[in-house]
Amino acid sequence: MGSKSKGGASKGEVRVGMPADFRIAEVTDVHRQLGEALDASQILLDGGAVDRIDTAALQMLVVFQREAQKRGNTVNWAGASAPLHDAASQLGLAQILALPAKQPA
């Protein structure tokens, strides 16, 4: 099920990990975590382990980012895998997601 560890969450910071298979049938868990994370002031997204991703997952991240911006939460990326990068760019969502620079493969 990939890395969805919430470890290292200090008072204000919540970390949300994404599984290797991050596609429509697997989004429910992260959806819940993202919803909970909105209560924290600092949110760390970890997409470093993502191997397969689809529009459903990316759309969810987009919705989350927009809402976090609206609420004034700070969102940072702990990691974003190449597949995550490629998919986000292909769908024209890389900017909105504020992905970090692409990691070397």
């Binding site: 919803g35 459903a56 997952a57 759309q59 969810m60 919705v63 809402e67 769908l91």
Partner: peptide
């Protein structure tokens, strides 16, 4: 995010 059904497409 609350209202989102992540299996539906809104983009």
């Amino acid at each position: 995010l609350d209202a989102l059904d992540p299996t539906e497409c809104h983009l």
